[in-house]
């Protein structure tokens, strides 16, 4: 219980710092892959500071409230996760947070923003099955939906769930808004609909979105860690290595693949979900 509370407090306080650092590292690695020097590692924090110091133009009076809802529910799902609660609940709360974000962009009277919102919904539809399969996989492997039970099993979940792990890493590309699946909004300049989801956000509201995304990054990478931990110290080391390798992999994919059309994304992701996740689950049910 004490570790759970320590983890949760650590998540609330350090979450944005870890998320921001990871983004900074991502940007440097990304630049090096392209043969550039790249920004300093602390660049995301400079950006946030700048955004908090800018004038923020509100296009309506509900937008900021919805963005706050996004932040609150992302943090809430993270708290649930690190407290060791039900993993299904974590994923549902995360989806709710996503809906807040979509509502916020859809509320703005701008075609780019609403198109971003629509694409975000398509993305949610694309990765949601795999998220559910991940939860079910954990349940079959550890016979519990509770995160603390899953974390304490003797054999790390990855042994039972290699396919589901791959599927999860696959949808992480969508969640992290990495090319080829950065349809709704992108961290790069080459964006066909201005900035998509965040077009109409500015100043401190945009900063809140960034902070929420950092929290989300930490939470999603935490789930990666959950595949590896087993209550021992080497489980933790394994989890850390797993997290870093997956994160590096996402950066790599970001630089290698161009953005795809939305139906390619839906088809390929569902296909991968069905093959990797489905077969893994099927075998698991047979042997257990």
């Amino acid at each position: 219980m004490t570790t759970a509370i320590a983890l949760t407090i650590g998540f609330i306080i350090l979450g944005p710092f870890i998320g921001g650092l990871l983004e900074g590292m991502d940007r440097v690695v990304c630049a090096r892959m392209q043969g550039r020097q790249g920004p300093p590692v602390l660049q995301p924090f400079y950006d946030i500071y700048k955004l908090f110091n800018k004038q923020s133009i509100l296009v309506n009076n509900i937008q900021d409230l919805l963005v706050c809802g996004f932040l609150v529910f992302v943090v809430f799902s993270g708290v649930l996760f690190f407290m060791g609660e039900d993993i299904l609940l974590v994923f549902f709360a995360l989806t709710l947070a996503e809906i807040f974000m979509v509502m916020s962009s859809a509320s703005a009277n701008s075609p780019y923003s609403s198109m971003g919102a629509q694409r975000e919904l398509v993305q949610a539809m694309t990765y949601e099955p795999m998220l559910l399969l991940t939860a079910i996989g954990f349940y079959i492997a550890a016979e519990s939906f509770r995160v603390d039970d899953i974390a304490r099993t003797d054999i790390p979940a990855i042994v039972y769930l290699p396919g589901i792990f791959l599927g999860y890493v696959f949808i992480l590309t969508i969640k992290f808004r990495k090319s080829p699946f950065d349809l709704s909004t992108s961290h790069h300049a080459h964006q066909e609909m201005v900035r998509g989801l965040t077009t109409e956000l500015s100043g401190n509201i945009l900063a809140l979105v960034e902070v929420a995304e950092w929290y989300e990054t930490v939470l999603l990478l935490g789930v990666i860690g959950l595949f590896f931990v087993n209550g021992t110290w080497w489980g933790l080391v394994l989890a850390l290595v797993g997290i870093l390798v997956s994160f590096f992999f996402e950066t790599f994919v970001d630089n290698v693949f161009p953005r795809v059309h939305w139906d390619t994304m839906v088809k390929s992701t569902w296909m991968f979900t069905l093959i990797a996740g489905g077969i893994n689950l099927f075998i698991l049910v047979l042997i257990r």
């Binding site: 940007r27 550039r36 790249g38 920004p39 950006d47 300049a189 964006q191 201005v194 900035r195 500015s202």
Partner: peptide
């Protein structure tokens, strides 16, 4: 000036393409 040789991004410059994000 944003390409690898000059790499403006080393000063934190990002080409946003969105007036609401730009400085």
């Amino acid at each position: 000036s944003l390409m690898p040789k000059y790499d403006l991004e080393r000063f934190g410059v990002v080409n946003t393409g969105n007036p609401k994000h730009a400085d």
